[in-house]
Design a protein around this nucleic acid. Sequence first.
DNA 1: CAGTGGTCTAGACCACGCG
DNA 2: GCGTGGTCTAGACCACTGG
Lengths: 259, 259
Amino acid sequence: MAALGVLDMASDRPVFQQIADQLRASISSGSIAAGERLPSEAVLMRHHGVARMTVRQALGVLKAEGLVVAEHGRGVFVRPRPVMRRLGSDRFARRHRRRGRAAFEADAKAAGQRPTVDQLHITRQRPPVDVAKVLGVGPDEEVLVRDRRYLLDGHPVELAVSYVPLDVAEGTPIRDPDSGPGGIYARMEDAGFTFRRFHEDVTARMPSPEETRRLDLPPGVPVLTLRRSAVEAGNRVLEVCDTVMAAHSFVLSYDLPAK
Amino acid sequence: MAALGVLDMASDRPVFQQIADQLRASISSGSIAAGERLPSEAVLMRHHGVARMTVRQALGVLKAEGLVVAEHGRGVFVRPRPVMRRLGSDRFARRHRRRGRAAFEADAKAAGQRPTVDQLHITRQRPPVDVAKVLGVGPDEEVLVRDRRYLLDGHPVELAVSYVPLDVAEGTPIRDPDSGPGGIYARMEDAGFTFRRFHEDVTARMPSPEETRRLDLPPGVPVLTLRRSAVEAGNRVLEVCDTVMAAHSFVLSYDLPAK
DNA sequence: CAGTGGTCTAGACCACGCG
DNA sequence: GCGTGGTCTAGACCACTGG
């Protein structure tokens, strides 16, 4: 088996890296398929004649790369390729809201998955300073904060926090846990607001421990972060939404007209 | 110092996690500022009365999160916040090409940085199967492949591989190392092609060892991957470009019209 | 040179899963 | 009960940085 090759003791490359290299090659060549178990630590120790810590260091490299996942008492497994979810750049199209579908719901339904929301908390708080700036509210002004978690088929995939100025939220059911069909954008349109455009800033980083917990992330999976601003016809920002997604569950998809 | 708190031996939380937690808190509270050195392994061992491997495991957690970087012989440092580069969704606007600027060049100049390209390889190859599908070429058909690395002020920030059908490349300088002012999109327009739109799929993951090397990535930094398809008026895909970026150096920025 | 992190050994006890 | 990975100890030698 390719995963159990020989070490080059003359090489400068550390032993644990050589072991990681061989295992990685076996994974990418498919000789250890997705979902399959790697040789156990004991087997790797005996085969290469090294200490356990050395083997564990090699496995640590692969975990950090997100290639494998350890399961206590069972073994170390090649991470199965997860189902990707695609966020189309038309997911904020008015027609979805007219049909009573919020963006997340529309995407999930399109992929044949069951969308749910939990950990919903609606509060009044002072937003982070950068959010206040975008919303054009004072540094000490409170806004409506909707914090929630999205799940697909029961698995958490996305955290989102929306910030809405109080005067925009006023007189709408945005403050209610159930914002109704089409989501809060639909409610804003009901109240007479018109959206001109949405702006999204995308970046990626490793998750915080709290994000790891709430998204049930395996080690080695980064998060995609997305900050969306919903801009009104008069160029006022009606909402800022900070989203954190498990990167292995998402593809963000954008169309850019060649103007 | 907050970084040198006390351990709760009664806690279920492993000792190395507790040490990592305390250091993380010190970093995010700013009591150890960006660029500053953490207490050395020896200090942490003495203070907490634990073995070296335990301290190293704690530091390993923070490295994996991308919060700190170890420098051999010097110490472990809080990772300084890197300069972010913003890719706007108008970066493929025709006006840039008319002014002789390719997308990367236009972005870099706007940020006051010096853009360069190296490791440029132009070959004819069979593309990956998924690329062939998008380009609408046969599975065994060769295409023109432009592989290159982009640098800002001498630091590598982005890897890109373009795939262009041979008949599109024919009669254009796309096959030359220097594609001329405005980049290969400008050359395609010179040859009479018209772009209707660009499509981008964005995702994130941990880098491969080769990407780590070519982008000179510190540990714990994920990559953003972007696959762009350039679509002609007749809906033919003229080019597929796979881009890999160091996530801590980029913000991708998109405008979505609220149609 | 002393101090730092990088690698590696050879053990120990524990918690989990599965039969 | 046995094999698995998770945590931890107490050392060792090395390579790099800086004064």
